[in-house]
Design a protein around this nucleic acid. Structure first.
Lengths: 217, 217
DNA sequence: GTCTATAACTCGATAGAC
DNA sequence: GTCTATCGAGTTATAGAC
């Protein structure tokens, strides 16, 4: 229940964002939104034409947030591998799932092109951004020459989205982390280890990111 | 709506399975189940104590089916890589999503340990089975020595689960296939291509499965 | 802008006739 | 075993007072 300096319509959008994340579209009722926002029926229907309209505003904002968070991970100046690793290892509320990806399991989101569009565009942007980084890595000789940027990008995003599924099934973020580590170990220019010989100077290899013992869990 | 030789309780379970797959637990009402099963309120509450009880029966059956389908892909006598590829490339109703995995996004499934248990156990079994196959591949020198079986297994299952997310977001199975191809290209003992030199006889490498232009899509 | 009132319906379940 | 009737609560809104 919000009581801050937010306007009523702001509070309605924020409450909807939370509930869509927690319970999905089908599982979220206008009444629940109003209660969490501290607003009456009339307020909601004054500012929005109905549940789909409000959900659209909420989804667009959540999509923009996710994009910004991903961009922050990509924006570093490391190697392609390091930037992909930074994205995969960025802090996440693993057990809450992906606020955008989870919407794809909602029948009424998928059935409504207007509600599905921001979800589609966000994941599409993410794959495109990752594909570009993989291409840079290929140009630098960081990855095996036969890999296809768009395919690696899809595998990266899928590993994240599927990692949420595994984590929620087990009730622990462990499986998410395991999947990410597995993918990174396959993507890594060379295996980790202290007994590593120095790479020849003509080879553009870089040390893989050390996996931090992160705080989550 | 079923009218076959199925008993009423069978029809209720099958109808529930379909609806859980299409709409999830929160999105599935007893009334919808009864209508699809062609049964009245009284029948449902005679055979089952309520919605959770019926859902549990449906989920257990769906979990058993998924396990059997996966086992069929694993049971082949190819290399570890080939059996993992067979699992990843097996026919799927990609746009319908995973009937087990999708349940993890349902707040009421996750909140109820009895309903979550079969989901958890199924995905856990799947990861364990895959980890065993990766270990076999390691023993045969099929994979890079530094990979960790449990991590690769998690990445494989996550890629599938996340592939469903991408496919449903775009409305096409293409992104699912791309992710799977990407993961296989990273896992592949050596890059594909006709100009491949024959491996030295002491090396256990095997040709990667040709990706079939499969019928889905 | 926000509130309450009301509508027509569905929710998950129980009771009891047949 | 299956049916209909009924329950109290919740759903998605509209209407209209303030």
């Amino acid at each position: 229940m919000y009581s801050d300096g937010m306007s009523t319509s702001e509070r309605l959008i924020e409450a909807t964002r939370e509930l869509l994340w927690e319970r999905g579209y089908v599982g979220t009722s206008p009444k629940a939104i109003q209660q969490r926002a501290g607003a009456g029926q009339g307020s909601m229907y004054h500012h929005f034409t109905g549940k789909p309209d409000l959900a659209l505003a909420a989804i667009r904002r959540t999509a923009a947030d996710l994009r910004a968070a991903a961009e922050a991970a990509f924006a570093g100046d490391g190697t392609a591998y390091e930037r992909i690793a930074a994205y995969l290892l960025r802090e996440r509320d693993v057990l809450r799932g992906c606020p955008v990806g989870r919407l794809t399991m909602d029948p009424e989101i998928i059935a409504d092109d207007e509600l599905r569009a921001p979800v589609d565009e966000t994941l599409d942007w993410l794959r495109g951004r990752l594909a570009g980084i993989v291409q840079e890595g290929l140009d630098q000789g960081e990855f095996a020459a036969h890999v296809v940027p768009g395919e690696i990008a899809s595998a990266v995003v899928a590993t994240v989205q599927g990692g949420y599924v595994l984590a929620r099934a087990t009730g622990s973020p462990e499986a998410f982390d395991a999947g990410v580590r597995g993918l990174l170990s396959l993507l890594s220019p060379r295996p980790p280890g202290p007994a590593e010989p120095a790479p020849p100077s003509f080879f553009h290899a870089t040390a893989p990111l050390q996996l931090p013992p992160h705080t989550r869990e």
